Amino acid sequence: MSSSDRRAFLLSVLALGACGFTPAYGPSGGAGVLQSQVRLTDPVGRDGYLLNRRLEERLGRGGPSARYAMKVTPIVTQSGMGSTSRGLTTRFQLLGKAKFLMTDPVTADVLAEGEVQSFTGYSATGTTVATLAAERDARQRLMTILADMVVDRLLVAASGLPS
């Protein structure tokens, strides 16, 4: 690393510190109040399971004494995108939404709520087994994307949550 690159890096770090930037997972970051303190409702279906699994990977598993309760509802729609001259669909797009609601389990006050959305796609060229595997993988990718977006929203709101 050249000395001009080092200087630019150090100046950017100082600028971030001066503007009030605090790492979410740092000692004074807001994410600490969420770690293992969010109890998720039981998932419905495979999409719900995949979404909850990713949320637990990111936030930790909140037990019965967790400070927050959260319900996340995934909604997935599928549409054909490409087709052959014979009318067979060769490409599908999965559009996903995840509605989330975080409450205080004692008072039932709403602490955070919202909706995130994203999409992914998969190819239907090949055998039926390959197409089903591609769809399954695309759904898993979509649930990971949606869960990460929900966590990002919670991290932004974390500093305002009651501890």
Rank of each mutant, 00 (worst) to 15 (best):
V76D: 01
R6N: 09
R46K: 06
T89C: 08
S4A: 13
Y25R: 13
V44E: 11
K99M: 10
E56K: 14
L40A: 02
A157I: 02
T127E: 05
V129G: 08
S4H: 12
G48I: 06
L155K: 09
K71H: 13
R53E: 11
K71P: 01
K99V: 12
A133N: 13
Y25P: 00
S79C: 05
F21D: 03
G114Y: 02
S36P: 01
A112C: 08
T103W: 02
L50H: 04
K99T: 15
S123A: 11
G17R: 15
V106M: 10
F21M: 06
S123L: 12
L11K: 14
T127R: 07
F119E: 06
P74V: 00
E135Y: 01
S4P: 04
L101T: 07
T22G: 07
L132Y: 10
P23R: 14
S85H: 08
K97V: 03
L111M: 08
L55M: 11
A130P: 00
R153T: 01
L146C: 05
A112Y: 01
S159P: 02
V156N: 04
S28N: 15
T125V: 13
L155F: 09
P27G: 10
L161N: 05
S123Q: 10
V76L: 12
S118Y: 07
S2K: 14
A133R: 13
T77K: 11
T103E: 08
M1C: 12
R53H: 12
M70K: 04
F119L: 06
M149V: 03
L59R: 00
S123E: 09
L155S: 03
R86L: 15
V110A: 01
R91N: 03
A147I: 06
Y122E: 01
V72T: 08
F21W: 12
E57H: 10
R61K: 14
R46T: 07
V33C: 06
R7F: 09
L88R: 14
R153A: 03
L14N: 11
L154N: 00
D109T: 07
L154W: 02
R91C: 00
D104C: 09
A15F: 11
R39K: 15
I145E: 12
L146V: 07
